[in-house]
Amino acid sequence: MAILEVRNLTKQFGGLTALNDVSFSVEPGEIHGLIGPNGAGKSTMFKNIAGFYAPTSGEIRFDGRDITGLKPSRISHEGIVRTFQETTLFQELSVFDNVLVGTHNRSRTDIFSAILGLDRQKQREAEDSAIEVMEFMGLADRRDQLAAELPLGSQRALAIAIALVSKPRLMLMDEPFAGMNPEETGHMMDLTRRVRESGVTIVLVEHDMKAVMGLCDRLTVLNFGTLLARGSPEEVRNNPDVISAYLGGSHA
């Protein structure tokens, strides 16, 4: 059974239709690419799934449960975590604290235990899992650096670490390769595969075709807010509609 199922999703802003009746599904354990030319509606789709927008109509099911229109924090409780397009991090916090914020869902604490010091055990657990994830993402030796001071590759790795430490079942990655050189891209692709191997299903919005083709098991192609094609990278690459959309539209 599909872990994520998007059915007939439509999103309108005023009179503008950003997504029109789009359906696709994601299987457990796969890396699923969501691609399309600029303005195809990829980011809008993302924000709908992660709860930042409420769909105009249609349904989003996660693991068989209807999650349509829930708030972002609720969605993340369900097990879906997104990363952000730009280097969206807590810039003024250390790497360690950044990751620690990500443990929010798994080990809740409240203000009374915080004042009375009753949350030692939870605090220790949270710190342990933060350290574990930092090691997993190769950030252990940058623990006390400020997020703002990291090089681009490490910032993206940190963004994934924040998401990963909340132990999601589905991770939505928004253009993780944007602005990277080939070497950084290669490193990032390895990290992405490792995340998948740890048991997390991944949906990826990306412009970098090389990375998408090399990484994804299946692709969903959007164009002008509608579904253009679905299938394996091979099938999509040879799909005439896709070719003309990419050549005819912008050369993204």
């Binding site: 930042f52 993340s76 909340s166």
Partner: peptide, 9 residues
């Protein structure tokens, strides 16, 4: 938004 995405209300 980032805080929300990791479950912070």
């Amino acid at each position: 938004p980032l805080a929300e995405s990791v479950g912070v209300n």
